[in-house]
Amino acid sequence: MTAQDIAVSRNGNVATIEIRRPPLNFFDLKLIRAIASALEGFDAEPEIRAVVLCAEGKAFCAGADFSSPDNGTPAETDLLDTTDHLYLEAVRIFRCKKPIVAAVQGAAIGGGLGLALAADFRVACPEARFAANFTRLGFHPGFGLTVTLPEVIGKNNAELMFYTSRRVTGEEAHRMGLANVLTTKEKLRDAAHALAAEIAECSPLGLLSTRATLRGDLADRVHAATRHELAEQQRLRQTADFAEGVRSTAERRPANFIGR
């Protein structure tokens, strides 16, 4: 873990992880591993009862960086590496025991949406944007979203987000249950910490026990889902449509997909 990846702080029984890769906070194996390691560290500290996950810059997390597809960016390398894959690190996040509140101040896109959904709750503002933009890239959803998104907003709403790749505003996210709290951007972190502090007031043993019951086998289901998601991503990564999806997104124009 390095200072430029994440910052960790504590205030009473609440810990904070801040992603520090502004402005867009693209993820890669290193970043997801750092977050997972920090959360596992909190699990070993009985005084920490809840965690706030937030980000510096204008985006919460814009997912993997596909802006330079010919250069082999670190995120792309992670998506091709099945032996030390960032999804394995993502499963570590889902296996952590303490409740997580995500403060989403801007874009949570693709795998960044997956990271937001690894949290128990999301606090958002009107400026937040949530998108599962995989089909617009000619790609398959990842980061366990095929499990987590339907559970939070329902199967049909998840299908709508997946099939259209549309961006959902903070207000829309709040209406569909994707965001639990909607507040102003200026008050976002305070609201996230207030929710975490309210959680932390409860019995730590009762809290851990209740969360373990309600989460159930979620981590195992995410693990199984990411294996399938990765296989589909590996297959689609080789297609002309994926290359066109990346190009058209970078060039901010409609894609010309050909179905192969």
Rank of each mutant, 00 (worst) to 15 (best):
V152R: 15
F94D: 15
C54S: 15
E18I: 05
R221T: 01
R189L: 15
N256A: 14
I19W: 02
G72H: 04
G245R: 00
I17E: 00
D217N: 14
G245P: 09
I258E: 13
K187E: 12
A118R: 01
R129H: 10
P150H: 05
D81G: 05
A192M: 06
S203E: 07
A231F: 04
D70C: 07
G142L: 01
P150E: 08
A192D: 00
E40G: 05
V14L: 06
D217E: 15
V168P: 06
L53Q: 03
T183N: 01
E45T: 06
T213E: 12
N71Q: 15
L182Q: 02
E89L: 06
L88W: 03
N25R: 03
G142C: 10
R189I: 15
T249R: 14
A240I: 11
P23S: 08
K187Q: 13
N180E: 13
F143Y: 14
T184K: 03
A15Q: 04
V101I: 14
I93F: 11
R33C: 04
F139V: 00
G111D: 08
E151L: 14
P204W: 01
R166I: 15
R136H: 09
A191V: 00
A128P: 07
K97C: 09
A116T: 02
R136I: 03
L208E: 13
E232P: 00
A116D: 04
D190T: 12
A34N: 06
G111K: 00
R221D: 09
R227D: 11
E40I: 00
R175D: 13
G57D: 09
F26C: 08
R221S: 03
R253Q: 01
G41T: 05
I17G: 02
I19F: 07
T213S: 11
R221L: 01
I32W: 00
G206D: 10
C54G: 03
S67T: 14
T183A: 03
P254I: 02
S248E: 10
L182P: 10
R33V: 10
N13E: 05
V123Y: 05
A7Q: 13
L149P: 03
R95E: 15
A107T: 13
Q105K: 09
A7K: 11
A212D: 12
I48R: 07
F139A: 11
E198V: 02
R252H: 11
A44R: 13
G170A: 00
I35S: 03
E18T: 14
H140V: 12
R175A: 14
E45V: 10
E151N: 15
L117W: 04
A212K: 11
A192L: 10
S67P: 08
G138P: 06
V168T: 14
K187A: 15
L178D: 00
A255E: 08
A38G: 03
A224V: 10
A107I: 07
